[in-house]
C-alpha cells in the first residue's frame, strides 16, 4: 500500500474507520456513553479473531468452521489460572497462544489431510469436541460457565480493568494482528498459501509440499485467534462453552465474508457491520412495532442469504467497485 492508495474513496474509508476506532474512548467519554465503548471493545476483539480466520480462509482457502474453539481456549487460558489464583497476564496470554497453537497443530494435522466439505466438517467436529469437553468439566463450571473474578495483571500501574486502558490494549492488538497478517500474506510464505488456495495441484507440481505450509498458516491463525480469546476472557469476565458452539464459528465466517475475505480491511468491516446490526436491528424494528425486535434474526437471516447470493467480495468488494 502506498500514499496514492489512501487517497481513494476506499482508502479514505479505511483510514476513517481506523481513526474512528482510535479515538472511540474519547468520543464515548464526551458523550458519556460507556455502553458504546463496550460494543466497540467487543468489535475490536472479534475483529482480531476475524483477521486470524481471514488469513487461512481468505488467503489460504481453508474454510475452518471451528474457529470459535480458539476463542474459547484463549478465554479459558485466562479463566482457569485465575480460578487457581494465578493472576499474571504474562502467564495467561502466552498460555492462550501456546495452547491454541498446539490445538491447531494437532487438529490441523488431521483436518488438512482432507479437502472441501470434509475439511469444513472436521474442523467443526473438533470444535464441538472442545465444546463438549468444557461442558463436562464440572470443576470449571461445566455448561454454566466460569466466572473470571479478576483481570490479567501485567505491570503495576497499568490496570486493564479500566475500560479505556483495556480498549487501547485491544486496539493495539488489532493493529498488530492486521500488520502481522499483512506482512505474512505478502511474504514468500504468503504467496505459497495464496497459490495453494488458487490451485493446490499446480503448487504441488511446482514442488511445494503444500501440506506443511497450510498447516503452518493454520497454526498461526489459531494462535492469533487464541490471543483474541484471552482478550475476550478479560472483557466478559465470564466464559461459557456456549462461546465455542458451532453457530459462533459460523458467525465468525459470516463476519469475514460479509466484510470481504482475502482483503486487509474486510474482516474489520465485517465485524463492524455484524455487531452494529446485532445491536441496533432489534431497536430499529421496535420502532415499527412494539417488541418486533425479538424477531430480529429473521431480517438478519434474510440479509445473510442475500449477501451470499448477491454481494460478491463483501463490503470490501463493493468499495473496490466504487473505486473504479
Amino acid at each position: 500500500m502506498n500514499a496514492s492508495d489512501i487517497l481513494t474513496p476506499k482508502g479514505l474509508i479505511a483510514a476513517a474507520v481506523i481513526l474512528l476506532l482510535a479515538v472511540m474512548p474519547v468520543l464515548t467519554t464526551i458523550a458519556d456513553q460507556a455502553f458504546y465503548l463496550d460494543i466497540a471493545t467487543r468489535i475490536l476483539i472479534l475483529a482480531i479473531a476475524a483477521v486470524s480466520l481471514n488469513l487461512i480462509l481468505g488467503y489460504g482457502g481453508m474454510v475452518s468452521f471451528g474457529h470459535a474453539a480458539f476463542i474459547g481456549i484463549g478465554a479459558y487460558a485466562v479463566g482457569i489460572p485465575i480460578y487457581y489464583d494465578e493472576y499474571s497476564g504474562w502467564l495467561h496470554f502466552p498460555l492462550a497462544i501456546a495452547v491454541s497453537a498446539l490445538y491447531a497443530l494437532i487438529t490441523g494435522a488431521i483436518s488438512l489431510r482432507t479437502k472441501g466439505v470434509h475439511f469444513i466438517m472436521i474442523t467443526m467436529a473438533f470444535s464441538q469436541m472442545v465444546f463438549f469437553l468444557f461442558i463436562s468439566l464440572e470443576e470449571y463450571g461445566g455448561d454454566d460457565g466460569l466466572l473470571i473474578w479478576s483481570d490479567s495483571e501485567f505491570v503495576d500501574g497499568v490496570d486493564v480493568d479500566d475500560p479505556t486502558t483495556f480498549y487501547y490494549l485491544c486496539f493495539i492488538s488489532l493493529m498488530g494482528a492486521l500488520f502481522l497478517v499483512h506482512r505474512i500474506v505478502n511474504s514468500r510464505f504468503g504467496r505459497v498459501i495464496r497459490g495453494s488456495m488458487s490451485n493446490d495441484k499446480r503448487m504441488k507440481a511446482l514442488g511445494y509440499p503444500t501440506y506443511g505450509y497450510k498447516l503452518t498458516a493454520y497454526v498461526i491463525s489459531g494462535a492469533i485467534c487464541g490471543y483474541a480469546g484471552a482478550l475476550m476472557g478479560n472483557f466478559t469476565n465470564f466464559i461459557s462453552p456456549e462461546m465455542m458452539g458451532w453457530t459462533r464459528s459460523g458467525e465468525l465466517i459470516f463476519m469475514v465474508v460479509l466484510g470481504g475475505s482475502g482483503s486487509v480491511m474486510g474482516p474489520i468491516y465485517g465485524v463492524l457491520s455484524f455487531l452494529l446490526l446485532e445491536e441496533f436491528l432489534p431497536d430499529f424494528m421496535d420502532l415499527f412495532s412494539k417488541d418486533a425486535g425479538i424477531y430480529w434474526h429473521l431480517p438478519f437471516g434474510i440479509i445473510l442469504v442475500l449477501v451470499v447470493l448477491f454481494v460478491r467480495g463483501g463490503i470490501n468488494g463493493l468499495l473496490d467497485r466504487w473505486n473504479r
Partner: peptide, 15 residues
C-alpha cells in the same frame, strides 16, 4: 462453492 452453501444455509437456519 461450499463456503457459500454453509453461509446461506446458516442464514436459512436463522430464518
Amino acid at each position: 462453492d461450499h463456503l457459500d452453501h454453509v453461509l446461506a444455509t446458516f442464514g436459512l437456519i436463522l430464518i
